[in-house]
């Protein structure tokens, strides 16, 4: 069992009791209407908002446990997030965006760049390295965001509506790419989506909000 979350997540007035566990190679889909708190789960696991109570564990390491005042800072968790609103760094080139996490973890510059290039090739953006996020299409930005997360080789991959910020034309391309990327991914994945078709295509288990 790789990732397990048993407790209450919440933001502001909103609270929800959860008991989930995701094994290696498994994709847990969380579905539900907008505003039902799906993103809150993602942000809690990523360490951007605190767990209200209970326990969050990965690979036997406790990330959050309010009862014992255990908190692992966001940057020290072996997870990577693809945000719903993408959040690329607008002032950096595409390749620097992808390499950011590696550089932040202390990987040497040339190695970080070459690994980033490999990842960009895998998401089909081979010659995009020097472009700026504002100069590429929404679908391409989403691919960069995927590469930026996957290049870290995280144990936990958190995908927040990876297809929602994308126009219909690029969506079909991403629909083909995502299963390919996920099947090659060894860790646990949590996918948030409100689209039953995506869930059908990608998930090995589903949690209805």
């Amino acid at each position: 069992m790789t990732l397990s979350l048993n407790g209450i997540v919440g933001r502001g007035e909103f609270e929800r009791m959860l008991d989930i566990s995701v094994a290696d190679g498994e994709v847990l889909a969380i579905t539900g209407p907008n505003g039902s708190g799906k993103s809150t789960v993602i942000h809690t696991i990523a360490g951007l908002i605190p767990l209200r109570s209970g326990k969050l564990q990965s690979d036997g390491t406790t990330w959050d446990e309010p009862a014992t005042n255990t908190w692992i800072a966001s940057e020290n968790r072996t997870c990577a997030v693809v945000f719903q609103d993408i959040r690329l760094f607008a002032h950096m080139s595409v390749i620097s965006n992808v390499a950011y996490g590696l550089r932040a973890r202390g990987v040497r510059k040339d190695e970080a760049l070459s690994r980033s290039e490999t990842l960009l090739a895998r998401v089909g953006l081979t010659s995009f390295g020097n472009r700026r996020p504002n100069d590429i299409s929404g679908g391409e930005r989403q691919r960069v965001a995927l590469a930026r997360a996957l290049v870290l080789e995280p144990r936990v991959l958190l995908l927040d509506e990876p297809l929602s910020a994308v126009d219909a034309a690029s969506r079909s391309g991403l629909r083909e790419l995502l299963p390919e990327l996920l099947s090659g991914f060894a860790g646990s994945t949590i996918l948030v989506s409100h689209d039953p078709a995506d869930v059908e295509a990608l998930a090995s288990a589903t949690l209805q909000f």
């Binding site: 951007l48 908002i49 605190p50 309010p66 908190w71």
Partner: peptide, 9 residues
Amino acid sequence: MTTPQKPWK
């Protein structure tokens, strides 16, 4: 918008 709140001070 998520402002990181920090219990992990």
